[in-house]
Simulated assay, not measured.
Amino acid sequence: MNPQKKKNRILAIDFVRGFSVLAIIPVHCMLIYGSSEAWGSFIGQIIRVMEKGTPIFLVVMGISFAFSSRNSFSTAIKRGLSILALAYSLNIIRFVIPLSIGIIPDSFVLRNRLTLGDPYNYVYFFLLGDILQLAGLSLLLMAVINKISKNKYVILFFVLLIVSVSKELSGYRVGHPVLDYLCDLFWGNKFNIYFPVFPWVSFILIGLFFGKWYKELNQDAVKMYTWMWRIGLLFVTAGIGLCSYNYEYHFGDYYHLGPGGFVLLIGINLLVVWTGHIIVKFCKHNKFFELLYFASRNVTVFYIIQWILIYWGIALFGVSIKNEYTILMIIVLVTLTTFSILYLKKIGMKYLKNQKKHRMQNSLS
């Protein structure tokens, strides 16, 4: 295998994932701090576009799973369960604790259509479904699919099946609180779950499809990325056609899209991944690239840190901020603080590693 091909592939994947990681802080800051006026500003409109970049992370997650040494059935199940545990632990830190000590204001509680002073509010925020819940459940699902068949076309079949039927399943419940919550996790249409597994897992599975294809092509990046932009264009064309036919059904709600919306976004994100490959291939390596690679390698920790900073930051900044430049200042502050914590963590881990190595050398001398 050509080592340069392997290097280019990894850097291209890290590049687009790192870019998507950087985009989450502006989106989350606007979601939590911004008023409708801020969303309607020029900066708010840019962030609306950035919000649509969430699927990039999911596509790359699928590609990475194909190459992971931890993609056996048992390992994937354990990873999925550990991510789910992490997801609900994060909900305690960013929601439950701030709510219990009065950091989260009444207006934020009311925005979620909850009743002030109701003990159920703690349950609601603890169970709130976000990207980590999706990632954990998707790993469990991928473990099962990978167990059933390792054929890439079986995975593509599941992508098309999930995209086709998810809108019809959307919102279905059985009438039991526990089972209804599970239904919401998988195909809910309310905002207690932002990323229901069906159809959001389709982004991860399309990434897994290309990851497996890349391996079958003997890691020929040129062929894989060529097919990626071709299929991306095909999906974009089909998605535009479906959304034009019935926009409300196919693209009316970004978090609960119809088949046309997901086909369109899958196509766009495949083209974005291909664009990342082109940029890494033809642009000279620079400090900004290094920043993206660093963010990509620390994606989970980055995600957790920025959410904690944003929610605990409500105590300092409040919510429903109208001035978009104030929110821009908060975005810069949260971004710098997040990277500072990550670098301190890196330095601390390096120090502990050196200390451990030093102790081992002393014990042998």
Rank of each mutant, 00 (worst) to 15 (best):
G53S: 14
P55Y: 06
I56A: 12
F57T: 03
L58S: 13
V60E: 04
V60W: 08
M61T: 13
G62I: 05
G62Y: 08
I63T: 02
I63E: 02
I63Y: 11
F65S: 14
F67K: 00
S68N: 12
R70E: 15
R70M: 03
R70N: 12
R70A: 08
N71L: 10
N71M: 10
S72E: 10
S72G: 15
S72I: 03
F73E: 07
F73Q: 05
S74Y: 12
T75V: 12
A76F: 04
A76C: 11
A76W: 02
I77Y: 04
K78W: 04
R79E: 13
R79H: 10
L81F: 13
L81R: 01
S82V: 07
I83A: 02
L84I: 12
L84P: 08
A85T: 07
L86W: 10
A87M: 06
S89W: 06
L90N: 09
N91V: 01
N91T: 04
I92H: 01
I92P: 03
I92G: 09
R94H: 04
F95E: 07
F95P: 04
V96A: 07
V96S: 07
I97N: 03
I97L: 15
I97K: 01
P98E: 05
P98Y: 06
L99D: 08
S100P: 05
I101T: 15
I101L: 10
G102K: 06
G102N: 04
I104H: 03
P105G: 06
P105S: 08
D106G: 14
D106P: 06
D106W: 10
S107C: 11
F108L: 15
F108Y: 15
F108W: 15
F108N: 09
V109R: 04
L110K: 14
R111H: 14
N112Y: 10
N112V: 00
R113C: 01
L114Y: 06
T115F: 08
L116V: 04
L116I: 14
G117N: 03
N121M: 06
N121S: 13
Y122E: 01
Y122P: 04
Y122I: 02
Y122Q: 01
V123F: 15
Y124V: 05
Y124H: 13
F125H: 10
F125L: 11
F126R: 00
L128M: 15
L128F: 14
G129E: 09
D130I: 01
I131C: 05
L132K: 01
Q133F: 03
Q133N: 13
L134Q: 09
G136F: 08
L137W: 11
S138T: 15
S138R: 03
L140G: 07
L140Q: 07
L140C: 07
L141T: 08
L141I: 13
M142H: 00
A143T: 08
N146E: 07
I148M: 13
I148R: 10
S149K: 02
K152P: 07
K152I: 10
K152A: 11
K152S: 12
K152E: 15
Y153E: 08
L156M: 14
L156A: 12
F157D: 00
F157G: 12
L160N: 02
L161I: 10
L161F: 15
I162E: 05
V163D: 14
V163H: 00
V165D: 04
V165L: 11
V165H: 01
S166W: 05
K167L: 05
E168T: 07
S170R: 10
G171N: 04
G171I: 01
